[in-house]
């Protein structure tokens, strides 16, 4: 099939003054696939996300999102909130960004804001409690309950989101993103700070999202056990450039990736006095 991929990133470049954070990166992310972006710290992974979700305007590049039915959105031209509203790209953050003093359920309802706003006649119907709005609200609560059951937070739905344990907050943030009914879900280090069991649950959840909800997932991750187990496709960045792109097996064996992670031939890379110092100790 010669169909356009869900997301096609072409020649993405992002400069901050003289600093080139991303340098001519192109890759595709497929529908119903988990695409992982990996790379050492400072490689520009989160910058790619920020460009995709409208927090930065890319210096150069084209970010095309293809919806089923042939509609195309050029994300680099859209205003930040419209990317979530119209193009339906949802994201989570490296440092969790829940609404800590609102309840778990409210967090999930805020995610369904745009649909509820329309149903409430932009507040007018809602103010007088018309049935149209009450049905929409009941439906939104059902959607929230569905995700709460999935992440196991139904019994604590009425507590403040900020009081949840760390692992639950991570999963709640993913559930909140899913409540916007995205077609592409971008997760910024979802496994950071999770223990082995929570990490396994996360893998399970991401597979579920890909297989049952049939959307594309884009993932930044340091935890290789997560990346290698669940990704269908891995993109490796280093110093803002793409150095490898392929299946997990391919990337794992790619010499360029090994060099980026483990360093070049160490004796050559190190200054002579440091090498000598290391040598004398060893």
């Amino acid at each position: 099939m010669n169909q356009a991929p869900l997301l096609r990133v072409e020649h993405l470049t992002m400069r901050f003054g003289g600093l080139v954070a991303i340098d001519d990166v192109s890759f595709d992310a497929g529908d119903r696939e988990i695409t992982a972006i990996i790379g050492p710290n400072g490689a520009g992974k989160t910058t790619v996300f920020n460009c995709l979700t409208g927090f930065y305007k890319p210096t150069i590049g084209r970010l095309a999102l293809h919806k089923a039915g042939g509609r195309e959105f050029l994300l680099e031209r859209m205003e930040g909130y419209r990317i979530g509203q119209t193009a339906r790209v949802a994201r989570t953050f490296q440092n969790i960004r829940l609404f800590p003093r609102m309840s778990v359920l409210e967090n999930l309802l805020v995610a369904q804001h745009n649909r509820l706003m329309r149903a409430s006649g932009y507040t007018l119907f809602g103010l007088f409690g018309l049935p149209v709005y009450r049905q929409a609200e009941a439906h939104a609560v059902d959607v929230a309950r569905y995700w709460l059951d999935r992440i196991g937070l139904t019994p604590r739905a009425d507590e403040d989101a900020g009081n949840m344990p760390y692992g639950d907050q991570r999963r709640l943030e993913i559930a909140r993103a899913m409540c916007t009914e995205p077609i592409l879900l971008c997760l910024d280090e979802p496994a950071a700070g999770l223990n082995a069991r929570e990490s396994a649950e996360l893998n399970e959840m991401l597979r579920f999202i890909r297989d049952e909800h049939k959307i594309g997932v884009l993932l930044i991750e340091h935890d290789m056990s997560v990346v290698m187990k669940i990704s269908d496709h891995v993109v490796v960045l280093d110093y803002g450039r793409k150095i490898s792109d392929g299946t997990p097996e391919f990337v794992r064996k790619d010499p360029a990736v090994i060099r980026a992670y483990l360093g070049e031939d160490e004796d050559e890379a190190l200054p002579p006095e440091v090498a000598a110092d290391l040598g004398s100790r060893g």
């Binding site: 909130y81 979530g84 960004r97």
Partner: peptide, 10 residues
């Protein structure tokens, strides 16, 4: 959290 709101399409 305003940033989270923007990411949710508000």
């Amino acid at each position: 959290d305003e940033i989270a709101c923007r990411a949710l399409g508000i």
